[in-house]
Amino acid sequence: MEDYAKRGVFRGFHALPVRHGVAAFRMIWHRDRVFDLIVDTQKKTLRIPVVLPAVPSRSPLYRDFKAFVAGHHAASLPDHRRIERTKARVRCAHHRGSVSLTMTVRDGDYAYALQRLIHLVHETFLLFLTSGPYRDYLVDQLGADAEIG
């Protein structure tokens, strides 16, 4: 994570106090929003509780996002892009209007899972949201300027 921070991927990266063996980190990332990353080694998970805020659970956006996330396990993807199921598994969930991402580490390779999770969030903002019909969401919820993106 620090390597990403050093390369300017996100700002203000810092660790939060460890609670019950769960480590947490906070950073400012896409759209100047605060992202938390929770690392639970007992559950073997990496979780970002709020990737997309203010998403209705029955909305086309959430439906499309679930498909986008699931697509990252697809065998048709090249190795360097696929999330290998034997190594990690990703899923998204909806809670109180926010969409989260959780990566479950299956072979103990946290570095691999973290790298894929960071890339997935990055692609969410740069590919998923900009390539799909989500202009209004970007403007209304993520502060994008309708004129300049």
Binding site: D3, Y4, R7, G8, V9, W29, H30, I118, H119, H122, F125, L126, L127
Partner: peptide, 10 residues
């Protein structure tokens, strides 16, 4: 700036 273009993080 970092994060504007569709290039991998870092």
């Amino acid at each position: 700036t970092v994060g504007e273009w569709t290039l991998p993080p870092g």
